[in-house]
Write a protein that binds this DNA or RNA. Sequence first.
DNA 1: CATACCATGTAAGCGGTTACATGATTTT
DNA 2: AAAATCATGTAACCGCTTACATGGTATG
Lengths: 193, 193
Amino acid sequence: MAVREGLLALLHEGPRYGYQLKTEFEAATGGVWPLNVGQVYTTLDRLERDGLVEVRGVEGETAPSQKTYAITVDGVAALGEWWEAVPSDDPPPRDELMLKVLMAIERGDDHALRVITHQRTVLLTLLQARRKERRAAGDESLAARLVTDALVARAEADLRWLDTCEEHLQRRPASATSAPTTASSTSTRKASR
Amino acid sequence: MAVREGLLALLHEGPRYGYQLKTEFEAATGGVWPLNVGQVYTTLDRLERDGLVEVRGVEGETAPSQKTYAITVDGVAALGEWWEAVPSDDPPPRDELMLKVLMAIERGDDHALRVITHQRTVLLTLLQARRKERRAAGDESLAARLVTDALVARAEADLRWLDTCEEHLQRRPASATSAPTTASSTSTRKASR
DNA sequence: CATACCATGTAAGCGGTTACATGATTTT
DNA sequence: AAAATCATGTAACCGCTTACATGGTATG
C-alpha cells in the first residue's frame, strides 16, 4: 500500500502514462527509491480494476503508444483518505530489528546482550556515514535531503532503544539462559500427554 | 524476511512442530505480533526446500500428528548471518510516512504543510496513548514492554522529522505550487515532440 | 453435548521484485 | 552502426494475509 497510493497522488495532478509515472515517482523521492517499470503497469491494472483510475486514451499510433491514465472520483476519494490516514497500528508492523532482539532474548540474556552491542556498533557507523552524507547533500534535491534526515532520525531512535533494551536486561533478576515461564507453557503440555 | 528467520531462531533452541512455533513466536513477541498458523506451515515448507530445516519425524500416529522440524547446519549458518546483519540499506525500505510527505510536497508546499501538521497531531495523540500504555504495562512481559518502548521511540523520531520538514518548507524560497525543476524534466520531452 | 483448543494443511489473492520480450526513437 | 533511452507489457516467484477444510482432544 505504498506504490499504489503514490501513483494515485501523481495522477491527481493530471493524466499520465506508465513510464512517465515511473520517472516522476523517482524524481519525487529524490532518486532514493527506484521503481521498477513493470510494477507501474501491474499496479495501474489493479487501480483500473478497482475503479480508482481509468484509461483516458492512447496517443501515438506508432510503437511508443503512451497509454494515458486519469484518476477517477473514487480515486480522488481514496487518495483523500490516504492523506489523513496514519501509518497502521494494531498490530504494529513487524520490524526486523525488534524481532531480532526479542528472539535473541528468547535464546538467552547473554546472547541478547551480544546481539545488542553488535547491532549498536554497526548502526552507529551507519549513522555517522549518513550524517556525513547529509552534510554533503546541501545541493541535493529537497526530497533526497528529507529522506536522509528521516533515516538519521530513525537510526538515532533505534540506537536509543537498544540502550534501553540493554538496561532492561541488566537490571532484571538473572534468569540466565531463557525465559522459563513462557517456554514451559508449550513444553509441559507435551510432557503431560 | 522476518517470520522466516524468527522461526529459524526458535528452531535453533531445539526441534519444534508447527503449531508450537506459532505459540512460541507469539509468546516471544509479547503477544504483540500475532502469527497466522497457516503461514508457519508454508514458511516451514520453504525452509525445508532451501535446506535450512528438515523433518525430524512424526510423533503420534493418531490425528494431531505433530510433525517435528529441526534446524540443519545450513540453517544454523543462515541464522548466524542474520544475527549480525543490519536491517537493509541501499535502497532504504519505502516508508509510508516519508512517501506521503514527499508526494504532498510534489502537489504543492501548502498542501504539504497541511498534511504535515495533520500527521503531527494524529501522531502526537497516538504517542501519548502509547506512553500511557507503557506506564501501565509494568507488570507485562519484557517483550511487550520493549516493543512499546520501540514504538514510542519511533513515533518521537517521526514527530521530530515532521518538524524539520516543516522548517525546510518554510525556509525555502516560495515556489508556491509544485517543484518546477523536477516536473519539467518529463513534461518538456512530450512537448518537444 | 457443545464449544474451545490442538494440529495439520490447502487455496486464493495482494503487493512487490526480478527478469524477459518487443519495438521505436534518440544519442553517441 | 551500435548503444542508450522511451514505452509497453508478460511471467515467475516471494513473503504474507485471510479464509477454509479436516479431524482429534479437552473443557464447560
